[in-house]
Design a protein around this nucleic acid. Structure first.
Lengths: 125, 125
DNA sequence: CAGAATCCTCTGCGATACTG
DNA sequence: CAGTATCGCAGAGGATTCTG
C-alpha cells in the first residue's frame, strides 16, 4: 500500500526532473548564452559582446556550469593572444529547440502581456 | 547612418522580448504554477498541495504577478469558507506548449546531464 | 585575451504571526 | 480558507582589481 499523497493531482516533487532542470537553466544568463552560441564556436569576448550587459564574472561562471553539465564544450588554443572558444555539445544543441519555442512565444505574446500589465495598473488606480 | 554594434552577431539587447519574458517566467515558481494549473480552475489550497515546498507567500505573490500579466484569472466565490479559484487565461494556456517542450527535454536529458556532472567531478578530483 | 579573486549590495524568498 | 504584514538571511550577481 502506498500513501495517497503522491498520487493526487500530479504534484511537483521537490526533485522532479522539471525542477532540477529549472534550477539550472532558470537563472538569469543560461538561456541567453545557449542562444548566443548557436551553431558555431564562439570566443569568450565575442560572447560577451553578443550578450549585452553580462558581466565577465557571470559569463565565466555560467559557462563553467554549462560545461560541467555537458551542454557546452571549451576549446583552448594557445596562441599569442590566447583563444578560448565555446560551443554547444550535442545535448546542448538539443536544448535549442525547446528554447526556440519559448522565444517564439515571447515574441508573439509579449505585447499582450504588456497590455494586460498596463490595463491592470489602470484598473488598480 | 547607424552604428554597426547592433547589427553584428544578433546580440541580445537589454530589453528584447526574450529577456523580458525570461525575467517574468524565469523565477523559481512561475513555471511550476502554470504547470500545476493545467486545464481547469484550481483552488489556492489545492495549488499549494500540488506544488510541493512553495510557501504561501510566494504562491500568492507569483499568482498576483501572473494575474497582472493576464496569464491567470482569479475567481472569488463568497461562501462560508471563502473559495478562490485560479485558472489559466487563453494566453496562459498558450504558454503551456513551449513549457511542455521544455519539460520533455528535462525528462529526456536529465540523466545525461547528471552523468556529465559526475564525470566532470571525478575528472576534477 | 580570458580569466581568477575579492568586496559589497540588493532582493528573492522562507519563517512567523495576524486578519476577514 | 485565503490571504496580508513584517523580519531576516543567504545567495545571486555587479564593480573592481590583479594575473598568465
Amino acid at each position: 500500500m502506498v500513501t495517497t499523497s503522491t498520487l493526487v493531482g500530479n504534484p511537483y516533487q521537490q526533485d522532479c526532473p522539471t525542477r532540477r532542470i529549472l534550477d539550472r537553466i532558470g537563472d538569469k544568463w543560461t538561456v541567453l548564452i545557449v542562444g548566443a552560441l548557436g551553431d558555431d564556436a564562439v570566443r569568450f569576448s565575442e560572447l560577451r559582446r553578443r550578450i549585452q550587459g553580462i558581466s565577465q564574472k557571470m559569463l565565466t561562471q555560467t559557462l563553467r556550469s554549462l560545461e560541467e553539465d555537458g551542454l557546452v564544450s571549451r576549446t583552448v588554443t594557445a596562441q599569442v593572444p590566447i583563444k578560448v572558444e565555446y560551443a554547444l555539445t550535442d545535448v546542448g544543441q538539443s536544448l535549442r529547440a525547446p528554447l526556440k519555442a519559448l522565444e517564439e512565444w515571447s515574441i508573439e505574446h509579449l505585447g499582450s502581456v504588456l497590455d494586460a500589465r498596463i490595463a491592470h495598473q489602470e484598473a488598480g488606480a
